[in-house]
Amino acid sequence: MTTLTHALGDSATMVRRQVKHMWRYPSVTLMLVGMPILMLLLFVYVFGDAMGAGLGGASGGRAAYLDYIVPGILLMTMASTAQGTAISVAMDMSEGIVARFRTMAIARVSVLTGHVVGSLFQALFSVAVVTGVALLLGFRPSAGPVEWLAAAGLVLVVSFALTWLTVALGIASGSVENASNVPMPLMFLPFLGSGFVPTDTLPAGLRWFAEYQPFTPIIETLRGLLMGTGAADSAPLALGWCAAVSVASYLWAKKLYNRDPSV
């Protein structure tokens, strides 16, 4: 009982710490959100016309391609935020303050939950900004209030999983430099899935990978919710992946954090 309230209280304290960090240094968040926006602009205005023609839709062109890539870009936004988490966790671990936390009678994992919840706020903010930019560029989703809510929920679930993963990676990487490189593949996974082109345009081996990698059902679910193409098929798989990654990453991160640093 008291253990649980202490754990919640300590986690809330750590979340406040993270939010203060973000509030004080907004440049970090802006950098993390800037990258997917640049990608969005690049793909829509440089490749958009040619790629849109390849989609084979009736309207085709740039507008159709914008509608197509927004879910992939949103996933990239979440991955970008998660990458920032790995860096801030690695920075924390290299500072004396975490050693201090370890010598205090507080819920141990609260340091990590603080990072995760803080990053969730950051991810929601970033996704909202990127969505806003997409809408300004002419993104026209067909989602109603229920679909929007479901999409927001999915963003939370996906970010939760990615963030626990990058928290673990941030501890495991052992240095800030490594922490900024290790999660890089997450940024590229949307490319090797249905994020930017339909998977049936890919060569056989790559197509096989694209169809089975976790980002594809997530992108498909998000696209289904936003564009009304139906999410029922991919949603269970997407949620299953998120649950599996969350649980495995949480256990890994906790184990890494609790290990005796001298061994």
């Binding site: 209280g9 304290t13 710490r17 960090h21 500072e95 004396g96 303050i97 050693a99």
Partner: peptide
């Protein structure tokens, strides 16, 4: 842990927070 205080060789303060916020953080914990 509940009864000790530790000041290590390397400073264990949160550089991104102010002095006051650092102390408040400890008070909350």
């Amino acid at each position: 842990r509940a009864q000790i205080g530790v000041t290590g060789q390397y400073s264990a303060v949160d550089g991104l927070l102010t002095g006051e916020e650092n102390l408040r953080l400890m008070a909350d914990l």
